[in-house]
Simulated assay, not measured.
Amino acid sequence: MNLEELTTRLHAIRDSNDWSGFHSPKNLAMAASVEMAELVEIFQWLTEDQSRQLPADQLEHAGQEVGDIVLYLLLLCAELGIDMEQAVRAKLADGERRFGK
């Protein structure tokens, strides 16, 4: 996954729709949170086993929500000047240090 390419494509969509005024860090964080809630809703009331064996339509829906979340986080990183790959690698290294490999 090329994050720079994805961000460029997202910015093209944003710019062609004149959405940049709405893409403040606050709004992007809130939008990502809303999409996360939509992902959580898929699993609400399922048992642990059911959550691991989603029907094809629900699995596709979950994938769409994951995509929405990642795209909003990419936009948020761009707005804040955060290198997403570096941030993820640093967090993973911290987890490895704290909890083992």
Rank of each mutant, 00 (worst) to 15 (best):
L3W: 08
L3Y: 05
E4A: 15
E4N: 09
E4F: 06
E4V: 11
E5I: 13
E5T: 09
L6R: 15
L6C: 08
L6K: 11
R9F: 02
R9I: 03
R9G: 02
H11E: 13
H11C: 07
A12R: 10
I13Q: 05
I13M: 02
I13N: 02
R14D: 07
D15C: 01
S16I: 00
N17H: 09
N17A: 06
W19C: 00
S20Q: 14
S20G: 05
F22C: 09
S24N: 04
P25V: 03
P25D: 12
P25Q: 09
K26Y: 05
K26L: 08
K26E: 12
N27Q: 15
L28M: 08
L28S: 10
M30D: 09
A31L: 12
V34F: 09
V34W: 02
E35P: 07
E35R: 09
M36Y: 06
E38I: 08
V40Y: 02
V40Q: 15
V40C: 09
V40A: 15
F43T: 01
F43V: 05
Q44N: 07
Q44K: 13
L46S: 10
L46M: 12
T47V: 08
D49W: 06
D49L: 09
D49H: 10
Q50D: 15
Q50S: 09
Q50P: 01
S51H: 03
R52I: 01
Q53N: 15
L54C: 04
L54H: 01
L54M: 11
P55A: 14
P55F: 12
A56K: 14
A56W: 04
D57M: 02
Q58C: 05
Q58Y: 04
L59C: 05
L59E: 08
E60G: 01
G63W: 01
G63P: 00
Q64I: 00
E65Y: 02
E65N: 03
V66Y: 11
G67H: 10
D68P: 02
Y72H: 13
Y72G: 07
L73C: 14
L74H: 15
L75M: 14
L75I: 02
L75R: 10
C77E: 10
C77W: 03
C77R: 06
A78L: 06
A78I: 02
E79K: 15
L80Q: 12
L80N: 08
G81E: 11
G81Q: 00
G81D: 05
M84F: 11
M84C: 06
M84H: 05
Q86A: 15
Q86V: 12
A87I: 02
A87W: 06
R89P: 00
R89L: 13
A90N: 14
A90R: 14
K91R: 13
L92D: 07
L92W: 07
A93Y: 00
A93D: 13
D94N: 10
D94W: 02
D94Y: 00
G95Y: 08
G95R: 14
G95F: 03
E96D: 02
E96Q: 15
R97F: 03
R98N: 06
R98K: 14
F99Y: 10
K101A: 12
K101F: 03
